[in-house]
Simulated assay, not measured.
Amino acid sequence: MTARKKSKRTAFQANQEELKLRCAWLYYVEGMTQEQVAHNLGISRLKVLRLLAATREDGTVQIIINSQAQSSVALQRALEKHLGLFEATVVPASDQSEATIANVVGYGAARYLSEQISNGLSVGVGWGGALQACMRSLTWQEVEDMTVVSLLGGLTRASVHNPSSVAWRLADFYQAELFQITAPVFVPDTSLVTALWDQADFRDLRERARSVDIALLSVGDLSPQASIFRRGILAPNEAKSLRDAGAVGDVLCHFVDQNGRVIDHPVNRRVMAIDPTDLRQVPKVVITSGGVRKAQAIRAGLLATGARVLITDVAAANALLELPPIERTSS
């Protein structure tokens, strides 16, 4: 390498280091949003995301929480025993607002997923507020041959809240190959669902979904605050019909009863998403949801998918302990 080339490379590295520090300062110290940081620095939001991840990875930014966590550990162990889990993560939340719960549970999910990332990993991904928040706190690392499978269809209009957007963001962040259900998450009639799943590409995707190493999911309830109703994916008046049919919530946009069974309802016959029961053979199924109002839906989601890992908040954990325990068969 010539002296001139070496000098240019050194200057580029110095500029990148300065950009990383400025990005971290604006975001963590001045409290700007990622969009505001991108505008201030004249770079893309994706570049901001990667720079922030780099500051956490290389130790430029260190988040230290000083706490005696005996109570959280005890709550986690109680939850694992009560629900037959391999692992439970319980995070504190200052309140039960939608945004707070999504952010803290999403942070917990990001810590968990970042530790699982490795070469050749395949990840199936659902959607929801916690999973959207999760994408903001991932730790960057170089990874090879990683694949991401979106477990549900999307919307015909572009939106940050598109059900398929979480998988896209995860694949983009780690530069992984992405497999998507390129169809609306809800289609007009059952015959179209059948026709789409009969297509070779969709059959292959379903098999990929059943064979992922990790499935990262969220669940929804039937309240007006649930994303599926609040975002207009389903009409609010359909909640009553679903509730009358025995539903307590949805997993991958499939509505399930308190025992995790997919209910017989017209909405479930129109959904283009992986059936939650198809994930029961996946080695690690992770439910990431919080909030007291979702307790029944979380329990149903664990039963529907066979999930053995749960990431939730303290209030939801306590509410879950008041529900009947889950008896698991040995595996």
Rank of each mutant, 00 (worst) to 15 (best):
R45V: 15
L302N: 13
L310C: 07
V309E: 13
V105G: 13
L49H: 12
V248L: 04
R4K: 14
E115V: 01
A300F: 06
T33E: 04
V185I: 11
F229A: 12
M32H: 12
N162E: 14
K294M: 03
A133E: 15
S223G: 08
T89V: 09
L83E: 14
A69H: 00
L323K: 12
F173N: 13
G153T: 03
Q68D: 11
T139V: 10
A239H: 12
I228G: 01
L85K: 15
Q34E: 15
K5W: 03
L170T: 03
K240R: 11
I287G: 08
S150M: 04
L121K: 11
A130R: 00
L155W: 10
D204L: 12
V309C: 07
E115N: 13
A54I: 00
V286M: 01
A319M: 00
I233A: 04
L152F: 00
V251P: 01
D189K: 07
Q76G: 13
G301S: 01
S7M: 15
A317T: 05
V37G: 08
A69D: 04
R269F: 02
T139W: 04
Q68R: 09
D264L: 05
A14M: 09
A78D: 14
V219P: 04
I117M: 12
D95E: 00
L242M: 10
Q296W: 09
P283S: 07
A235E: 14
L192W: 09
A11Y: 12
T33N: 02
S330T: 08
R280Q: 03
R203Y: 08
Q141M: 12
L138I: 11
T190R: 10
G301E: 00
D189S: 11
S211V: 05
I298M: 10
A239L: 11
L121P: 09
